[in-house]
Every structure is written in structure tokens, then in C-alpha cells.
Simulated scan of single mutants.
Amino acid sequence: MGAMPERDSYDVVIVGGAIMGSAVAWFLTDLGFDGRILVLDRDMSFERSATATSTSCIRQQFSTELNVKISQFGAEFITNLRAFMGGDTRVPQLGIRSFGYLYLADTDGFADDLRDRAAVQVAAGAATRLLTPEQIHKLYPFYALDDIVLGSINTRGEGYFDSMAVFEWMRRQAIERGAEYVEDEVVGMDVAGGSVRSVALASGARIACGHVINAAGPRAGHVAAMAGIDLPVEPRKRMSWVFKAEAPLDRDLPLTIDPSGLHVRENGGGTYQAGGHFGDDPAVDFDDFEMDHGLWEAEVWPLLAARIPQFEAIKLTHSWVGHYEMNVFDHNAVLGPHPDVRNFLFINGFSGHGLQQAPAMGRGLAEWLCSGGYETLDLSGFGYDRLSSSAPQVEKAVI
């Protein structure tokens, strides 16, 4: 990586180098793309990227068949990472710690939603099971379940994985295959004749481009606006807390989605990770990573202890803030070309489930760039057109 781009023209310029941008870059090189690739990011440490601040988990419990299949490919990619990367012995053999996601419904209406989603998931090949409170208690006797009507869980290919290893090896191999990564910020775009002709960088450079990929995460709406495009993606603050239990649970804790808005999962070694949001969920400034330190005592700890009484005696060890790139239109991805600015492509708006979808989405966009269409999974339903035609593809299973 150099301080400035090596050239003044590239076939593909990717704005954002975290897991989405790196997935596109890696799959382009894997598919034999015959062109020059530049990946730009304002902070190559990625310290505050959505990739680095995520929960690092994958699930198949979505409300739409396509999102289930996308995450199924994600699980395949993770568990066969070395094989996908050509058998490179430097690449670790990864697995998924499949403790599953456990959705808890406290109303008949939410229980009906879980039944509807489970039918979609099972039809797509997921191993989702619906559980009565009695069945939940038998499997996980530590929960307080007096208010719970139904649960939903899948313990196959659903749980924790080393997301930073997947990201790092996508990035590293993309670089080794010729993709160029440069720390710089896109501050403007020259749009004429229905295409982006060039991007202007904070360093003062101007880069001509064949295609521009918006992989800017929570900043995606800001980047789209530079091309005169309205994209309803906003940064939303998400807080995470890691705590140690005085008396650890005697078995893995599924990533439990509580009706209160709290979620908590196994972290290993008697530690656990909690997250969520409570009350209003406004858009925030791109640089707002301020932690609400009072929330732990006022909301999070009481909710944890109410659902898992064994968590009355716990000690907070550390906490952090990250951002969702929330698509406020339908909580689903926006992927592919803009209908008017045809060389401006989206890979945005994942609303909290982007990390696990990066392999399938990166592959799909690389296929489109190489062949002009989606080849493995038909991802056309995520196109920008639905935003302007008010035809949402709603994903209900957003955490």
C-alpha cells in the first residue's frame, strides 16, 4: 500500500475497504477480472468500521428465502476458507461455533412471526426448530421463561466465527493478486453523461474510473450524494458490553434475542457479550462513538438478570460503540448499479447483517462486473429500482 494511488485511472474504484469492499476486490481477483482495482478507505486501521465492531456471528434465521441462502453461502465460505483461497496453507482452517440464535417471543403475534419465518427457513434448507417454553427450559434451564410463548433456534451453521480472519485474508489475497489499497478519502465525484468520470480525493488526487463501488458502510448515503444519488442509509449507534459471570453457565449460551431489544451470547471462558438498543433509535453523526455509560446499570444489567437470574452476579469488563448502516427503507441490502448513473454500484444498507452476507454479496457484485449479471444467486431483488418505485423487500429479522 502506498501513500498515493500508483495510477490516475482504474477500471474499478471501491470506496470503503472493510469487509464489503474487500469481498468485492477478492472475488474480482478470484474470477479473473482483467482490470485495475483501487480500494480507498479513510482509515486503513478499520478500528471503528462496522466490520471491527460487530458481534462476529452468522445466522440463517431470516424472513426471506434469499437472505437465508445468502447466509448459507456465508457459512460455506467461512468453514471452507482455505479451500476457497486456493489451498493457501497460511490461511487458517475456520469453523463456526454453532451455539445458534435463540429468538424469544413474548406475544402471540411475535410467535406467529417466528412460525412464518421458520417455514421460510426450513423450506430453504435451514435447520430451524420451534421450541415451546418447556422445551427451551429442558435445553437451557438457566432462562426465566414466565413471559415467553415460543422460541426459535438453529444450531447448524449459526453462531460465532472469526470475522476478522475472513476479512484479513480477503484483503491480503486481494492485495497479493494486484488490488491496490490506499488510505485516502473520497470527497467528490465528477458525474457527466450518466456516469462517474472521476473521484476527487482528500489528498488532492483525481482518479478516473470505469466503475465506482459504494462500499462505505454507514457513510454510504454520504458517498452516494456525491454522485447526486439519494440513498436512505444512515448510521445508527449500537453498543456492546462484555462481562464476566461469577458463576458461568454450564453450557453454551445461544445468541439470545430478548423481546426487550437486548441480545446476549457466549463469549468463552466464563465471559459473555451483550448488545442492543432501547427506546429511540435516531440517526447519529458518523464520528459519534460516545458510550452511554449509564445504560449498563439502568437497562442492560437488569434485563440480563431478569432473563438469566444467574447473571445477577456479573462484572463488566469492557464496552464499545459501533454503527449499523441502516437502510431505513426496508432494512435490506441495496446492491448493483444505479439505473441512471450506470457505473455507480451499491453494496450497502445491510442493517446489521452485512458481515455474514459479505461473501455472497461480494461474489454477486463481482459476477455482475465480470459478466454483466448475477450468476450464482439472483440478487436482482436488491436493486436500487425498488427504492424509487416504493417496492420494499422487507427483512423482518433485524436485530
Rank of each mutant, 00 (worst) to 15 (best):
Ser390His: 13
Gly188Val: 06
Glu234Arg: 09
Ala165Phe: 00
Glu266Phe: 11
Trp301Lys: 15
Ile96Lys: 00
Ile148Arg: 02
Gly279Tyr: 07
Glu158Met: 02
Thr51Cys: 11
Leu145Val: 04
Asp250Leu: 02
Leu81Asp: 02
Gly86Trp: 11
Gly381Cys: 04
Glu290Pro: 00
Gln173Gly: 00
Arg82Val: 01
Arg307Met: 09
Gly279Asn: 07
Ala366Gln: 05
Gly336Arg: 05
Gly178Met: 12
Leu379Trp: 00
Glu76Gln: 14
Asp112Cys: 08
Ile37Tyr: 10
Gly210Lys: 09
Asp292Ile: 00
Thr53Lys: 15
His293Leu: 14
Ser22Phe: 11
Ile399Met: 14
Tyr160Pro: 05
Trp296Met: 03
Asp378Thr: 02
Asp288Tyr: 06
Arg206Ile: 10
Cys209Thr: 15
Met170Gly: 09
Ser163Pro: 05
Asp281His: 13
Leu201Met: 09
Ala119Phe: 00
Ala3Gly: 10
Trp169Phe: 15
Asp162Ile: 02
Ser71Trp: 01
Gly270Thr: 10
Ile136Thr: 07
Gln273Phe: 07
Leu295Trp: 08
Trp320Ser: 06
Asn214Lys: 07
Met361Ala: 14
Arg363Phe: 01
Phe329Trp: 04
Gly261Val: 11
Ser390Asp: 14
Val12Gln: 03
His137Ser: 13
Ser319Cys: 13
Thr155Val: 14
Phe311Tyr: 05
Glu47Leu: 09
Lys138Thr: 14
Phe27Arg: 14
Phe142Gln: 09
Ile207Ala: 01
Asp287Pro: 01
Gln357Ile: 05
Ala105His: 06
Phe243Ile: 03
Val223His: 05
Ile257Asp: 05
Glu134Leu: 14
Lys244Pro: 03
Ser371Lys: 13
His211Met: 07
Arg172Thr: 15
Arg236Asn: 11
Ala83Ser: 12
Ser49Thr: 14
Gly17Thr: 07
Leu102Pro: 05
Tyr101Pro: 00
Pro259Val: 00
Gly204Lys: 08
Gly16Arg: 08
Leu377Met: 12
Ala124Glu: 08
Ser56Gly: 03
Gln173Ile: 08
Val212Leu: 04
Gly210Ala: 06
Ala245Asn: 10
Arg90Gly: 13
Leu139Tyr: 10
Glu234Thr: 12
